[in-house]
Amino acid sequence: MLDEIIASLFPDGHEVRRDKGVILGSATLRSGVRMLVLGVADRTALGVDEAIRLSGHVLDSIGRDSGPILVLVDSDSQRMSKRDELLGLNEFLAHLAKVLIHADTNGRPTIGLLYGHSAAGALLATGLATRVLVGLPGAEPAVMDLPSMAKVTKLSMEALQEKAKSTPVFAPGLSNLAQMGAVHMIWSNAASLADQLEALLVDLPAARDQRDALGKERGGRLKAAEIAERVRDLALQVR
């Protein structure tokens, strides 16, 4: 599936390779602009070894290239292991997010493309660290899967599924994350991905984080934007 997605995104050719679950490379847009490409494939868990290669790929490109950056995501959650935690996985995941955020706010707009699964720390370090997160139909993001939630909340799966119908706030799924403002848009599988990517690039939102306003507009997060704004105002007054 990844090969088809990349072919549809970059009909003019690309140098994107997949190695041990990590996607690295670049591609030429029809406008001639080079786009840096990276990501996680094959539902691979994002651990220290994967994260350091991804952040290195972005840092190597800074100062050398000038185009936008695409982050493709089909991952598991963060790698859950003694070794990864022992080595400071939180720092590696944060570092990857920081590098992406820095690039985005310094002239290298970042776009996340969620085409498979992702969850928890892996999603924070990749798709949620980009300026615009796009979902493809069939993508299955899940901060927490329902069986695990059932265990923690001590509610039955049936009860959770019933509650999920009335609120997007906890249940997995692309449309729920879109309502929250986390996923900006969902592309169509029927149209050329290259067309949709180029349309996005010519009309890119500003770098300022507006996901809370988006979540409010879509009815998924009614309080976040207002609370943040009120605290900001109070903090600016106290000086």
Binding site: L123, V152, F170, M180, D209, R221, A224, A228
Partner: peptide, 17 residues
């Protein structure tokens, strides 16, 4: 967990901020 999507996104917004 009871507001997992909102919490996850809040963390992403904090990291960016």
């Amino acid at each position: 967990l009871q507001e997992a999507n909102a919490g996850e996104l809040a963390i992403a917004e904090i990291m960016r901020a």
